[in-house]
Each structure stands twice: as structure tokens, then as C-alpha cells.
């Protein structure tokens, strides 16, 4: 059974229709914990993209030799291996950014989104399709994290990617750690509002 979507559709699906953060409401911990700046979101996004793509491809390659009863432990160990790889790479080459993300890089191993994609997609589809699906999911996660980081950095510090844009700090509240909850909640409400308005406009 192969998917009938083109590669581009798979990528767009991950970014919009099934965006991990805003649509599937998965992987909320980093979305709340370290989305204080755009850069943080981008770095963790890269790490997740890497793990998602490589785990998807690995599982897809070996899907015929994995016994169904032990598939979940297999997925977990595959993800853990790739997380170890990216963890060591980041610690070696980008120690500063790695320090900011702290324990969250290692915790990618427990992200529900990656296991879910392996279970729902990679174990049935070809390597090529899994690769593009992984890219889409990873980019979707990165997009969500960066959007959150953008709002929080702009409103909290008045900067974007470290460059001063506004010249003043509108609401310092938003860069404080716990504001992640409020920020995610408000953004979800905003998307719901857009959806409601959109439906209303369609009906009229």
C-alpha cells in the first residue's frame, strides 16, 4: 500500500494540515519550555527534523524484517540511536546553542510525534515517501517552534533573531519561562478564531 500523494504534498501536509504543534497538539514540552526566541526554535527544529527523517528512513528500510509484536521497542531504540547521534553532534559543534536547549535535545527520544509518524506512516510506505514525510513533519515542527519563538521574542524583547526591531520591550512577560503556557494557549485560540471566522464567511 503506497501513498498516492506527491513528495511536495507530503511536505505541505506536515507543515499545514497535520502541523505537529498546532494541529496534532503533540510535543508540547519544548513548545512551552524553550520557545523563548526564534533561534532556539530553529535549533531544536533542526534536531527534530534530523531525527524524524533518519528514523523514518531506517524504519522504512527495515519494515519487512521487523516483527509486528516488537515494533514499538524497535521504533524507540531507533529513535534513541539517532537522538544520541544528534545530541553528540550538537554538543561537539554548537556547544553554546546546545547549552541553551539543555535536556530537551535528549528528550526528543520521548516525543510522541516521531513515534506516531513511524507507526502511522513509515512502517507502511516506501523509503522515498517516508523521507519526504519526515521532512514535512520536521519542517512543520520547526515552523511551529519558530512561530512561537517569533511571537515571544518580538513581544518580550522587541527583537527578531537577536536584531532589535521595535526599539522597546512591549511585554517582558512573554520571555519569562511560564509565559509559554499562555502563549501556546493564546495562539491556539487565535487559530480557532481564524477557523470560526473563515467558516462563517464561507457560509455567508
Amino acid at each position: 500500500m503506497a501513498t498516492d500523494k506527491t513528495n511536495l504534498q507530503l511536505v505541505v501536509n506536515g507543515i499545514l494540515n497535520e502541523n505537529p504543534i498546532f494541529r496534532l497538539v503533540l510535543s508540547m514540552c519544548p513548545a512551552v519550555g524553550i520557545s523563548t526566541t526564534v533561534m532556539n526554535g530553529f535549533m531544536l527544529g533542526i534536531a527534530v527534523l534530523f531525527v524524524q527523517v533518519f528514523s523514518s528512513c531506517t524504519i522504512s528500510l527495515f519494515k519487512n524484517v521487523i516483527h509486528p509484536r516488537i515494533r514499538i521497542p524497535t521504533y524507540t531504540l531507533t529513535i534513541a540511536t539517532w537522538v544520541t547521534v544528534i545530541d553528540m553532534v550538537l554538543a561537539a559543534y554548537l556547544p553554546e546553542a546546545y547549552g541553551k536547549m539543555g535536556i530537551f535535545v535528549k528528550l526528543i527520544v520521548a516525543f510522541a510525534i516521531i513515534t506516531m509518524r513511524l507507526e502511522m506512516f513509515a512502517c507502511k510506505e516506501s523509503v522515498n515517501a517516508s523521507f519526504w514525510d519526515g521532512i514535512g513533519m520536521g519542517l512543520g515542527f520547526m515552523f511551529g517552534m519558530m512561530a512561537l519563538g517569533f511571537v515571544r521574542e518580538l513581544l518580550g524583547l522587541g527583537t527578531v533573531l537577536g536584531y532589535d526591531v521595535l526599539g522597546f520591550k512591549p511585554l517582558l512577560f512573554f520571555v519569562l519561562p511560564f509565559a509559554g503556557f499562555f502563549c501556546v494557549g493564546l495562539m491556539m485560540a487565535f487559530f480557532n478564531y481564524v477557523e470560526i471566522v473563515y467558516k462563517r464567511a464561507k457560509r455567508a
Partner: peptide, 14 residues
């Protein structure tokens, strides 16, 4: 209605 479900839970957690 826009806050029903998960969004309001996030605000409360905050």
C-alpha cells in the same frame, strides 16, 4: 468558543 478545550487548559496551566 475559541478557548474551549485545550487553549483554556493551557491558560490555566500558565
Amino acid at each position: 468558543p475559541t478557548f474551549k478545550g485545550v487553549p483554556i487548559a493551557f491558560i490555566v496551566a500558565g
